[in-house]
Design a protein around this nucleic acid. Structure first.
Lengths: 233, 233
DNA sequence: GAGTGGTCTAGACCACTTT
DNA sequence: AAGTGGTCTAGACCACTCC
């Protein structure tokens, strides 16, 4: 055997999720069923399920079963939206403005997004926090994967739920690059600050359950009242 | 049994590390030895060791053994120092200036640091990246735990190695709160930027292997050439 | 009561490192 | 050759959920 048997179990389950055979929130076969199907022992199926749980791909509940991780609007939004009150309280963003366009991919977009798309959708949004316009976001998606997303406006606040429910893309990881920048004229107007005021710029590349880079996002935040909070380990 | 047996194994090992009986980098007993010592099966000792490995507390190597995680200057520094080149390359900071003082703890320091210390050490440093003064840092430590650290100046660039090797504190987790701020007069002078220029302010609370909050740190970074990079999942 | 995952054991064989 | 961790199996009992 070139690879461990539990890896075969993992691959099988991830493939079934990716193909839509297993839906987010849906129940997986039990340890015994999986073991019998794939031809391994119950302990090996168990190890695979535990590893999938560690990766956040499945959730296991004693007495009930194993389920494909369904990111709720709450968990999905706040796992990747890190702005918090200074005491750590979560805040619900509210949509102020939204534009969706389809256009040619820039060279860097084509090179960094999955499958090197020639066309992308760009979702531009301005959202408020606690009644104050606080975020400007631009999300860029490969058009082949998210076909027709421009006809779904207005989009929900939690985009990743939309990706999951309508396009089968479960976002599990995002790499972010953070800088302090001075507000330009457009940003100052949209966020109601002075030009040159310090803003937090966050550039993100989000990956789905198969590790495919499926979204580039650039966000600009006011952080005079709120903070970006993260844990390192 | 109120708690799982593997938890007993974990607690035993963590206690031995915390007490100095097991040193960072040192070898742990084998799975069989641990099982015999604590009175569990080899599989249970194995599970405990694997969980400790996931938490980054031990490292396991096939054919060699299990070892207490020794954070090298490289891994320790760059796991918690997130400034990178825009392409992700790591950068080695160099010390420009350092001051260590002992003083009364502020109320918030006393309340958030381990054991509510009345006295703290404060380490103020300015460091350069790629030849440009880029970071101002202030680390605040409980004096009872870090007794005499003020006599160790000049300190190494990787403070967490010092904490580990001389005070038995292995830093494994840090909660950070990030804001974009405008440079004040002092910061502008130290970092050679205009007053009001955007800077990244990072406030950190670092916890050791026992979960004790042992350092408050406030850093201010220039991010015009570099970026703070982090992965969310 | 039936089915699920959680814990624990005992043993086997393999791959790797060290002596 | 001896010792280590890595994989895999088979089986037991428990705690929990659902019917």
């Amino acid at each position: 055997m070139g690879q461990p048997l539990y890896q075969k179990v993992i691959d099988t389950i991830v493939a079934r999720i990716g193909s839509g055979e297993l839906l987010p929130g849906g129940m997986l076969p039990s340890e015994m069923q999986l073991a019998a199907e794939i031809g391994v022992s119950q302990g090996t199926a168990r190890k695979a399920l535990m590893m999938l749980e560690q990766h956040g791909i499945v959730r296991r509940e004693q007495g009930r079963g194993s389920f494909v991780t369904a990111r709720t609007p709450e968990s999905s939004l706040f796992n990747f939206f890190r702005l918090r009150e200074n005491d750590g309280t979560i805040i619900r963003p509210e949509l102020i403005d939204e534009q969706i366009t389809q256009r040619d991919a820039t060279p860097i977009e084509r090179d960094t997004l999955f499958d090197k798309p020639e066309q992308v959708y760009e979702i531009r949004r301005i959202r408020s926090l606690k009644g104050v316009a606080s975020t400007i976001e631009s999300a860029v998606l490969p058009a082949p994967i998210f076909a027709g997303i421009d006809r779904r406006a207005p989009l929900p606040s939690a985009l990743y739920i939309l990706y999951q429910q309508n396009y089968g893309c479960i976002v599990l990881r995002a790499d972010e690059s953070i800088n302090a920048v001075a507000a330009d004229a457009d940003e100052a107007r949209a966020l109601n600050v002075e030009p040159g005021a310090p803003l937090l710029r966050v550039e993100r590349l989000a990956h789905d359950i198969l590790g495919r880079p499926i979204e580039r996002r650039r966000s600009v935040y006011r952080t005079d009242q709120l903070s970006y909070k993260v844990t390192l380990d």
